[in-house]
Design a protein around this nucleic acid. Structure first.
Ligand SMILES: Nc1ccn([C@H]2C[C@H](O)[C@@H](COP(=O)(O)OP(=O)(O)OP(=O)(O)O)O2)c(=O)n1
Ligand SMILES: [Mg+2]
Ligand SMILES: [Mg+2]
Length: 331
DNA sequence: TGTTACAGCGCG
DNA sequence: AAAGCGCGCTGTAACA
């Protein structure tokens, strides 16, 4: 349609939502395509599919693959119940369909800033460690810094963007992508990254040491000894080499967080032995339970305690618990 | 009818 | 998307 080209893929012009956002002012069809894409995604992935998978007892069972991921996380499939809509208020409505039976509640327990805490622990960065000892919420803090000026408009959407920024920068995001994500200039994005690693000054050095070690050993490990083989660190291709480096310093953190919740699952299971509670889902750093309504408060305490004390780090682990009649009410 | 590559997008 | 990482699912196009 001769609209401006935002970027290219290997087969043509890119039409992903970022590209369309950039050209929406040039033609009314662009917004219509975005809306169509959104509805099509919801229908084809969730709304038209999931009801047919519910069994005779109104239960929906996914499968969990415990040994397919590179980092030690679980993977869920048929259907994937680890990617049910959450971030967009319109699509989040889907969670109202995931209900506890009469007399029971859905209870969710999610680690706070889990990979940031683990990164603080593993790197030993004093500023980072102190922030968590003081009970700071770094995602919220980043949100306020990003939206300095309009402090009333900082809600969950802004915190989610800040979350992407915090993990993006930690795991090697380029100033280019950061500037696009935040709609800011390249220079400002560079500044943000510099001040991030300036503030948490031991992080960079810790990451470099991990890469040096991985180059020698050909692998990287989480704190439990879980190993991931890393290829490409000695590649002559810059992109391939840099990609391998990012895997090296992501894996101990993402994989370590996976180790933590696995330990927590064992402890939770033991602690709940005599209560009418079933663990129904794991979503990377979150556990979802079905609980007799009467026992919700007691379960909340036990679960929170077991998860927060799964392992002992140089920072506290904090877990947010919430519950309701459906999955929508949690968080 | 089934497989693969691709682009795209949902979640953590 | 041009240096965030980790997943699974979808529709389309091309091909067997
Ligand atoms: N864009 C994202 C979102 C999440 N994660 C990883 C790091 C998070 O620590 C972990 C769990 O995701 P959460 O959404 O639970 O985020 P946090 O635990 O960091 O924050 P919260 O306090 O909101 O739970 O998944 C990531 O790498 N990139
Ligand atoms: Mg969390
Ligand atoms: Mg979570």
């Amino acid at each position: 349609m001769k609209l401006p080209a935002v970027s290219k893929t290997k087969t043509g012009y890119s039409t992903d939502s970022y590209a369309l956002e950039q050209i929406r002012a040039f033609h009314p069809v662009v917004d219509m395509i975005l809306e169509h894409r959104f509805i099509a995604k919801m229908l084809s992935t969730y709304i038209n599919v999931i009801p047919d998978l519910v069994d005779d007892s109104s239960r929906l069972h996914c499968k969990f693959d415990l040994r397919s991921t590179a980092t030690g996380r679980f993977a869920s499939h048929e259907p994937n119940l680890q990617n049910i809509p959450m971030k967009n208020p319109r699509s989040r409505e889907i969670r109202k369909a995931f209900r506890a039976p009469d007399g029971k509640r859905i209870l969710s327990a999610d680690y706070s800033q889990i990979e940031l805490r683990l990164a603080a622990h593993l790197s030993g960065d004093e500023t980072f460690l102190q922030a968590f000892r003081k009970g700071e919420d770094i995602h919220s803090r980043t949100a306020s810094e990003l939206f300095a000026g309009d402090s009333d408009t900082i809600g969950i959407t802004q915190r989610n963007l800040a979350k992407t920024v915090n993990f993006g920068v930690l795991y090697g995001m380029s100033p280019f992508k950061l500037s696009k994500d935040l709609n800011i200039g390249l220079a400002e994005a560079k500044n943000f990254i510099e001040s991030y690693f300036g503030r948490f000054s031991k992080i960079k050095n810790w990451q470099e040491k991990l890469v040096d070690k991985a180059l020698i050993e050909g692998e990287v490990r989480t704190f439990t000894g879980r190993r991931r083989l890393i290829r490409g660190l000695d590649s002559r291709n810059f992109n391939e080499r840099e990609k391998a480096k990012r895997k090296v310093f992501n894996t101990p953190v993402q994989g370590g967080a996976a180790d933590i919740i696995k330990i927590a699952m064992i402890k939770v299971d033991q602690a709940l032995e005599n209560l009418p509670v079933s663990l129904v889902l794991q979503i990377h750093d979150e556990l979802l339970f079905e609980v007799e309504e009467k026992e919700v408060e007691k379960t909340s305490e036990i679960v929170k305690n077991a998860m927060e004390n799964a392992v002992e780090l140089d920072v506290p682990l904090t877990v947010s618990v919430s519950w309701g009649e459906s999955w929508f009410e949690t968080h």
